Amino acid sequence: MDRPSLRRLFSACDVNKSGRIEYEDFTVVCRELGVPDTQVQTLFEKFGAFEDGYIDYRGFSSRFQEVSETLNLASFGAGSTQTPWEEFVDRIDEEFLLSER
């Protein structure tokens, strides 16, 4: 994923727009993506959040590829027309395009 796309994804996950992703933000996004509740805390920690209690952009960008491969985000909702991950990314792209206008 290129850096601008990663930055947009981080911003979309920063639900309360604090400049970092707190556990509450992360939980909202994970539920939207269909991540099982039992995996949310572990996934949050994989981004390095256990150190500070939140995910900053540096931790997010440096660990995103590894975490997404481990979790296999693209597989959530497999079998439907569009997976929750694809819908989420499409929504982020649409919001970005609207904000550019």
Rank of each mutant, 00 (worst) to 15 (best):
M1S: 15
R3V: 03
R7D: 04
R8I: 04
F10W: 08
F10K: 06
S11V: 07
A12C: 08
C13F: 15
C13A: 15
V15K: 02
N16D: 15
S18W: 04
S18E: 11
S18M: 09
G19I: 11
G19V: 11
G19Q: 13
G19L: 13
R20Y: 09
R20C: 03
I21T: 03
E22L: 10
Y23R: 15
D25A: 06
F26H: 05
F26Q: 02
V29Q: 01
V29A: 09
V29M: 09
V29T: 06
V29C: 10
C30H: 12
R31T: 10
R31N: 13
R31K: 13
R31L: 10
E32N: 14
E32V: 12
L33S: 04
G34N: 13
V35C: 04
P36D: 06
P36V: 04
P36L: 02
D37H: 14
D37V: 12
Q39W: 13
Q39M: 14
V40W: 12
V40C: 12
V40P: 11
F44I: 07
F44R: 05
E45S: 12
E45H: 11
F47C: 00
G48T: 08
G48V: 04
A49P: 11
F50T: 12
F50R: 15
F50E: 14
E51C: 06
D52A: 06
D52N: 02
D52P: 01
G53W: 05
D56E: 04
Y57E: 01
R58G: 06
R58K: 10
G59W: 02
F60I: 05
S61I: 11
S61L: 11
R63K: 09
R63Y: 07
F64E: 04
F64D: 00
Q65R: 13
Q65N: 12
E66M: 05
V67K: 07
V67E: 01
S68N: 04
E69M: 01
E69K: 04
T70L: 08
L71G: 04
N72G: 11
N72D: 14
N72C: 12
S75V: 05
S75Y: 07
S75C: 08
F76H: 10
G77P: 09
A78M: 08
G79F: 02
G79I: 04
S80C: 03
T81C: 00
T81R: 06
T81L: 08
Q82C: 07
Q82P: 03
P84N: 14
W85K: 03
W85A: 00
E86T: 00
E86P: 02
F88I: 04
D90N: 14
D90E: 15
D93G: 09
E94G: 06
E94T: 11
E94L: 12
F96C: 08
F96I: 00
L98Y: 02
S99W: 04
E100S: 10
E100Q: 14
